[in-house]
Design a protein around this nucleic acid. Structure first.
Lengths: 246, 246
DNA sequence: ATAAAACACGACCAAGTGGTCAGGTTTTTG
DNA sequence: CAAAAACCTGACCACTTGGTCGTGTTTTAT
């Protein structure tokens, strides 16, 4: 919900203000309003108090179910059961299952672009990269559901968010890559292809969220906070050494 | 298909010989045979020539569809269309969609346990780890479908393969971890928690398979062979440096 | 207070699904 | 060259699913 740092020079607009709002709009029910002369004027802020509360609850429940069962594996009824509302009611707020899924994904995308901060390029690579890895690791830890939904979506070729994410994603990535490239040019780190570094970080951090069940299998239980913290340290140290920054 | 190295002290049996065969058995149709006195004696090697050929084609098509649409998102009809056989026919060979999926997964699991070779512990960590990373990277490159099916399955909590994979997986991992542990004890590499190293390798290599569509988005096209080879080098070098092995 | 909007929801339906089955044709076996 | 096994498949069915609708209730605005 809250817009984090955000690259200033990005087309984030497409994803944030624009598409988030728009998603809320076409996800929001009450299609009937349109039938006759659209009486309710334009839109008095879209959504009464009740609506807002319920949409939030539904979204939360939906994320849970989508994460654990996948899009196709999720039935609207299952979500309804979880929020304890009749199915018809949730279809009243989100006019289709697809609309609900899109809304969930938009919420996720808002959080996805945790970038290097604006002054990254002037700072020490080691510091920026450390912070970036930690941010990603923490996201995996605190939002495994969202991470899973995102991963599943991408694995299946991003059928739903393709258009919403395509351009912005390219932008975010290019920006990060160019910062890294600059560091290399300045001789601040060993010569590497920035993209592959990003992939290594994304892959590793994503693993902790997406494969938590595998980790639990292996360890016999989930990672404790201390263990996770150790894992964070390991990733940071290994990457920094790997880049010859330590 | 070919059993690679394999940890000698593992219950791999459960997954390989046993469950692969067994899956073929209960996946294989002809349940009717059982109705009357089970005439066809015991089993003359299970499967005529036609059967073998068709099962293979179906399996291949199924893997494709499962990978791109997920288990729930896959309809038997879709697989049928792809192999150009009537739906009933594919249900004749694999008595249920679940059976087919299990069969596909078993094929995958057979290839999954690419381990350190038997003499790993006596070899140089750098060599073993390099080979391991390259093996995983190549698997991601040549078998992205299988990788995706596996990932999706794990993300959703491994509902299907849980039992088949649980113990073996723990075994494989423990074995690899103990080798790394030994290296650390011998002072051959810096002190790390072996598990976190494995996670980093798994996550990174998996990323190249599972997120190929994202990579394509970013680059505007898929990675070329040369680029992929550069990526391999980057991962190897970064990890080895990260472990202070270079 | 009262009208209008927003909210709630049981009942229902069309479409798609996995799976069965009966009766056919082809292949293998003796 | 039969008989038996293996293979093939259109038709069918039970069931789940997303989505609609009509109607009733609550909230909000005036």
């Amino acid at each position: 919900m809250t817009q984090t740092t955000a690259a200033p020079n990005q087309i984030t607009v497409t994803t944030e203000s624009a598409s988030a709002q728009q998603a809320a709009a076409d996800a929001g029910g009450n299609a009937k309003g349109k039938r006759r002369g659209a009486k309710p004027v334009v839109a008095k802020q879209l959504g009464g108090a009740i609506r807002q509360r319920n949409e939030e609850r539904i979204l939360r429940a939906a994320a849970e179910v989508f994460a654990s069962a996948g899009y196709k594996g999720t039935s609207v009824q299952a979500i309804a059961d979880k929020v304890e509302l009749p199915k018809a009611n949730i279809l009243y707020y989100f006019k289709s299952k697809a609309g609900l899924y899109t809304a969930v994904l938009n919420d996720i995308l808002e959080m996805w672009n945790q970038g290097f901060d604006e002054r990254a390029i002037e700072r020490e690579p080691a510091d920026v990269i450390r912070e970036y890895i930690l941010a990603k690791m923490r996201y995996s830890r605190t939002r495994p559901q969202e991470s899973k939904i995102f991963a599943t979506e991408i694995i299946h070729g991003a059928p739903v968010i393709r258009d919403a994410i395509d351009l912005p994603m390219v932008g975010w990535t290019k920006q990060k890559a160019s910062v890294i490239q600059a560091w290399v040019a300045q001789g601040k780190m060993r010569a590497i292809e920035p993209l592959y570094l990003l992939f290594l970080i994304w892959g590793t951090t994503q693993f902790y969220a997406d494969f938590d069940s595998e980790i639990a299998m292996i360890k016999g239980r989930a990672l404790s906070d201390e263990e996770f913290s150790k894992a964070e340290d390991f990733v940071v140290e290994t990457v920094l050494r790997g880049l010859a920054l330590i």
